[in-house]
Structures are given as structure tokens and as C-alpha cells.
């Protein structure tokens, strides 16, 4: 099977999955239930993607837990995204030095 065909199919499917709903949902959704559902979706998606995957993101549950703790504390106090993200990484790195 040709490489070009694989890559075309892969990219085509990935694009259509995004483009079809994004392009054709042009009207405001009226149903209060659906609007509430869509309001919660981003938070629910991110939560499900993060937990428990975050604990396996650094190759060691202990360093990942240190990074997670740093991220939770800093985001609780409303620090900017980049600060929280890099501090989580720094905390995981420092914890790794002690292992």
C-alpha cells in the first residue's frame, strides 16, 4: 500500500472530523439543556484527558505526582497557563533528581 495513500486518508479523516461540525453548526443552539451540556464539555474533556494520564506522563508516578501537586497549587491561586505548565515540569524534574 502506498505511503501517500495512507497519509492522505489519515489527514482527510482527521480534517473532516473537525471541519464538518465546525462549518455546519452556524445557528445558535436554543435548547437550554444542550447549551448547558456544551458549556460543561470543555472542562469534562480536559479533566478526563488529564486524570489519570498525568501520572504516567513523566515515566515515574512519583515525579508526575510532584508536578501535579505544583500545577494544582499554582492554578488554585490563578497563575497564568505558562507559569503553571512550566512549574509542573520543573517540579517533576527536581523530584527526579532525588530518585
Amino acid at each position: 500500500m502506498s505511503l501517500v495513500l495512507y497519509i492522505t486518508v489519515m489527514a482527510g479523516i482527521t480534517y473532516l472530523i473537525r471541519a464538518i461540525p465546525f462549518t455546519f453548526f452556524t445557528k445558535k443552539i436554543r435548547s437550554r439543556y444542550l447549551r448547558s451540556f456544551l458549556y460543561y464539555i470543555p472542562y469534562a474533556v480536559l479533566s478526563a484527558m488529564t486524570i489519570p494520564a498525568i501520572f504516567y506522563s513523566t515515566g515515574s508516578v512519583i515525579t508526575a505526582a510532584a508536578g501535579t501537586a505544583a500545577a494544582l497549587i499554582l492554578s488554585y491561586f490563578g497563575m497564568p497557563l505558562i507559569v503553571v505548565a512550566l512549574s509542573a515540569s520543573a517540579a517533576a524534574f527536581i523530584a527526579g533528581l532525588f530518585l
Binding site: 480536559l46 488529564t50 497557563l81
Partner: peptide, 18 residues
């Protein structure tokens, strides 16, 4: 390894305040 957590840290920064 430590870089692996960057994106998840960002996700937490988005969901924790609200």
C-alpha cells in the same frame, strides 16, 4: 521525561480556577 507533563499542567491551569 519532565517535559511530558507540560500539556497536562496547562490543562489543570484551565480547569482548576473555574
Amino acid at each position: 521525561n519532565a517535559m511530558g507533563i507540560v500539556l497536562y499542567g496547562m490543562f489543570l491551569a484551565i480547569i482548576v480556577p473555574p
